[in-house]
Simulated scan of single mutants.
Amino acid sequence: MKTYLYLLIAVAFETFGSSCLQASNQFTRLWPTLGVVAGFAGAFWFFSLVLRDLPLGVTYALWSGIGMVLIAGSGWLLFGQKLDLAAILGIGLILAGIIVINLFSSAATH
């Protein structure tokens, strides 16, 4: 259970770092740029802790899938980026894939 908490923390850091990347205006704004560094450093640290217990392929699939969903939401909420029907359907498919991995895959255990 702690492993999945670390995974969620890694995703939260990655979402923060990616949102700061958008706000940094190509690294021309100091505080968002520092947020990028802190966000990705935290993300990779917690990602490495998850790899103690879960295989790389499954961990990366979960991390990137959850991250894509959260980044799409962040772009929509913070930056006014539009999500059309195709984007929403695609996000739903990503979520479905995450659910299938966690409920049915024996690869999700080390």
Rank of each mutant, 00 (worst) to 15 (best):
F16E: 02
H110I: 05
A38L: 10
W76Y: 11
L62G: 09
V37S: 05
T33N: 03
P55T: 01
V58N: 06
F104E: 07
K82C: 10
L7V: 14
A61D: 11
I99E: 01
I71T: 06
L54G: 02
G75N: 09
A87Y: 04
I99F: 10
L85F: 11
I98R: 15
N25P: 03
N102F: 13
A12Y: 01
A87P: 06
V58A: 10
F13L: 02
L51W: 06
A43Q: 07
T109C: 08
L62H: 13
S106L: 05
F27P: 01
G65Q: 07
L89A: 14
L7K: 08
A108G: 12
N102C: 14
W63E: 12
L78F: 13
F47K: 04
G42P: 06
K82L: 14
T28R: 04
D53W: 02
G57F: 09
G17K: 03
W76T: 08
L77D: 00
V58F: 11
H110D: 14
G67F: 09
F13E: 05
I66C: 10
F47P: 00
L93T: 08
I66T: 00
V58D: 11
A108Q: 14
L34A: 06
S19C: 02
Y4P: 08
L56Y: 10
A38M: 09
Y4C: 08
F27L: 14
Y60G: 14
T28Y: 03
A12H: 02
Y60N: 12
A61I: 11
F40C: 06
N102M: 15
A107I: 11
K2R: 14
I66F: 13
